[in-house]
Amino acid sequence: MANPNELKLSEMKEAIKLLGSSAEKYKDPTLERFLINRAMDPKKAAKMFVEWQKWRTSFVPLGFIPDSEVAEQLEHRKIFFQGFSKDGHPVLILNANKHYPAKDQDQFKKFIVQFLDKAIASGIKGKETGNEKIVVIVDMQKLAYKNVDANGFIAAFKILQVIKSP
Rank of each mutant, 00 (worst) to 15 (best):
W52V: 05
F81D: 11
K146W: 07
A71F: 02
Y145D: 02
A144D: 10
I134R: 03
D106P: 01
I79A: 09
G126T: 12
L94N: 11
T57W: 02
D139I: 07
F111T: 01
A150L: 14
K98A: 03
A144K: 15
L74N: 00
Q141L: 08
E132G: 10
D41Q: 04
M40K: 07
V136H: 00
F108I: 05
K142D: 15
A121Y: 09
P61M: 07
I112S: 07
Q53M: 12
R56D: 14
K133W: 12
E132S: 09
P101V: 09
V148Q: 04
F111P: 00
S68L: 00
N151P: 03
Q53N: 04
L74T: 01
K43S: 05
K47T: 14
K103A: 15
M48Q: 10
A155I: 05
K43Y: 08
N95W: 08
H89N: 07
V148A: 10
P61I: 12
H76T: 03
E128F: 07
F59G: 02
I134Y: 10
R56F: 11
Q105S: 13
K98N: 06
M40S: 04
E72A: 07
N97H: 15
A144Q: 15
G130A: 01
L116T: 05
N95G: 00
V135K: 05
G130Y: 04
I124C: 10
I112P: 00
T57E: 06
G88C: 07
Q107K: 13
F81C: 08
M140N: 11
D41E: 04
L116W: 14
W52E: 08
N97K: 15
D117C: 14
W52N: 09
K47C: 07
L62E: 04
V60Q: 00
E75F: 12
I137H: 13
D106T: 15
E132M: 12
L74Q: 00
S68R: 03
K44D: 08
D117W: 14
K103Y: 10
V113F: 06
P61F: 09
F108V: 06
M140Q: 11
Q82S: 14
F81W: 13
V135G: 03
D139F: 10
A96D: 05
V50T: 13
K118T: 08
F49Y: 15
H99W: 00
A155T: 14
A144M: 11
G130K: 02
H99Y: 00
K127R: 03
D104V: 13
A96N: 08
Q107S: 11
S85D: 12
Q114A: 09
L143V: 15
M40V: 08
A119P: 13
F111I: 02
